[in-house]
Design a protein around this nucleic acid. Sequence first.
DNA 1: AACTCTTTAGTCGCG
DNA 2: CTAAAGAGTT
Length: 709
Amino acid sequence: MSHDLLAGLNPEQLRAVTWDKGSALVLAGAGSGKTRVLTTRIAWLIQTGQVSPMGVLAVTFTNKAAREMLTRLSAMLPINTRGMWIGTFHGLCNRLLRAHHRDAGLPQLFQILDAQDQLSAVKRVLKALNVDTEKYEPRKLQSFINMNKEAGLRADKIEAYDPYTRRLAEYFAEYDAQCNREGVVDFAELLLRSYELLSRNAMLREHYQERFRHILVDEFQDTSRLQYDWLKLLRAPSNAIFGVGDDDQSIYAFRGANVANMAHFQQDMGIEEVIKLTQNYRSFGTILDAANAVISHNSNRLGKDLWTTAGRGELIRHYEAPSDLDEARFVVEEIQGLHREGMAYADTAVLYRSNAQSRVIEHALFSAGMPYRVYGGLRFFERAEIKHALAYLRLIANHDDDNAFLRVVNFPTRGVGARTVEAIDAAARAGGVSLWAAACAQGAGKKGLAGFVQLIEALRIETQGMSLAEQVEHVVARSGLIEHYKSERDGEDRIENLSELTNAATAFAGESESQDLADFLAHAALEAGEHEAQAGQDAVQLMTVHAAKGLEFMAVFITGLEEALFPHENSLTEVDGLEEERRLMYVAITRARQRLYLTHAAQRMLHGQPRYGLPSRFLQELPAELVQTIGGWRKTSALAAETMESAPPAPSRAAALPYRVGARVQHPRYGEGVVAGYQGQGAEAEVRVSFPKIGDKWFILEYARLTPC
DNA sequence: AACTCTTTAGTCGCG
DNA sequence: CTAAAGAGTT
């Protein structure tokens, strides 16, 4: 039987799939069949009777990855995957907390705050404490809270050596208190809460440890400190963790990912040998060589090189554009050419480091009348009208949800102004009760408020006994949202989305076999929905490099390959920042199957001003024989190369270029400025300096009276 | 309560 | 430049 399952696996994959000596770490390169290994292993474990479906715990980071695993698994095995613990960290923690909400100290119908909700909750805390939000920015506090929770730290465990941090910790504590009062948890809280639940409750912990004989973890390099500890807590000494990841694709340190977990895992589990999947099934050899070459400039790697049997393929194409406009024009023309040769638009992707860069490319595509799709932006459950409708539903499920209350108490407007809300807020704080309770108490006198209270109560009663979809439909219809959007100029889309919400509820009820409103609300928070825009059409794919991780395309354009943009200037001041940028470059390169374009622009508009960038150091890190320069307005970028730290030193001319681009310099007449670029060579070399007020100035390098500052 | 003006910030973003 | 958020105006 298992023959079918294992057929077609290469020796490395086979070794990983059938590993039977305890915990394992699989170093899975890009395009090496990682998902296949994970799912085949689960199927193999079940089919060979080593574990029952209930005994498997498989964790991913995205809903998409979890879905894919489930789909592939049900194709491999005739089992019902429902009830199996396969999902995202957050989804599984949610499941755990719902099942044991009492032990976790949560109300049964606790609600989940998404990032937006969390930010407004944070703002409310700061307002209640009368904090100067200039000094303590809500966003900063939000990320402070999340960073600490991701490291497993509550407010009282934070070591604050300065008054500022001490204050932040205080506000953190107050925020948590507010969440507890309101019966809501944020994303990080889902994890921390379930970690604490398991660590405090030995009975529960042992129950799950006994149950999950095999734990499998996808994208191990993206795990946070807390997630790693959570996994260790769930694993009995006799059970195995199978971790799959790629340290070279670790690009999420900024949101708490801790690559070091891979090394810790090796030590903690006594793993002697890492299984490496290095055969790549995606790209041609030239592309892989380029990726290998770039990433080899990083230190602290576990180490691996990708290879293929597919052959060399085409050279990488490098285009040097005079400006961002020209870069976009080039990309458009190339895609048109590819399309004429039969390539689908959807097989081409344009990647960039930051979202702002998409504008120019979008404009060029639009002018050329070509279809395109931009990834990112608002997702379905994040749209304002959907959040409004959900707020009504949340308030029915949990009256104490102050976030939801504030969102809709006066939307659509019903004469409950800021003054009234303030009064409710004061009463609620004085009485230590929720806004809802305070509103009920004083609502009688005020027309609008009384109407709101009655509406919510009526909805609660009316929806009892209804199916989930009926409840959603009913609440949307009675909330007045549709009437409100009818009178708005471009409200049609919003009304359409609201009716789509009913469809989403129907679909959810069908998939999960749950008619429970709380389940649906959790689903809405945990799965914000796809990025809607014209999915499924044949369109050029535009996205950031981060968003491209895990995807592949026949042809890939990596644009904006300039110093200070990619690698991003902000990363240069961060610890290991440059290495993370290089991994980002590695991810970008390995998205391409057949053809890879690298482009950079000498001049680019940034923040409304022209910026002059040198070619990215990553271009220099590519072996010249893999790259073919096409077009190009300048013969060589050798001059540029020599200003770069990572380039081999060229003493004679390095002395001639005393400042890096981006370096701050002082000029006796114009004051402080930033070096924006160089032009010419030798005695004619000129330096361009940007001054804040005055703008850009060219100086003959030899005579310019510049001093570093 | 809608509208307008001003100010400000601007890397990447799963759940 | 430009989008978003906050403040101020009608």
